[in-house]
Computed example of a mutant assay.
Amino acid sequence: MIKLFTDIDLDGLGCGIIAKLAFGENADVVYCSYRILNQRVEAFIENPDHDHDEMYITDLAVNESVEKKLDKRFRVGRHVRMLDHHVTALHFNEYNWGMVKTEYDSGKKTCATSLFYDYFIEHQLLERSKGLEEFIDLVRQYDTWEWQANNNVTAKRLNDLFYILSREEI
Rank of each mutant, 00 (worst) to 15 (best):
I2N: 00
L4Q: 04
F5Y: 11
D7M: 08
L10R: 03
D11Q: 09
L13G: 00
I18V: 12
K20V: 02
E25H: 10
V30H: 15
S33D: 07
Y34D: 01
I36G: 09
R40G: 03
V41R: 15
I45Q: 11
D51K: 14
D51F: 15
M55E: 00
I57D: 07
I57L: 13
D59L: 04
S65G: 06
E67W: 15
K68V: 03
F74T: 01
V76Q: 04
G77C: 13
G77N: 08
H79V: 04
L83E: 15
D84W: 08
A89N: 03
L90P: 15
F92R: 00
N93Y: 08
E94G: 08
E94L: 04
M99E: 15
K101F: 01
E103G: 00
Y104F: 08
D105W: 02
K108F: 03
K108G: 06
S114A: 07
L115C: 11
Y117F: 15
F120T: 15
I121E: 02
E122C: 03
E134R: 11
F135W: 08
I136E: 03
Y142N: 12
D143Y: 07
T144L: 03
W145F: 07
W145Q: 07
W147Q: 01
Q148A: 09
Q148G: 06
N152K: 11
A155H: 06
A155Q: 03
K156G: 02
R157C: 02
R157E: 05
L165P: 00
S166Q: 01
E168R: 10
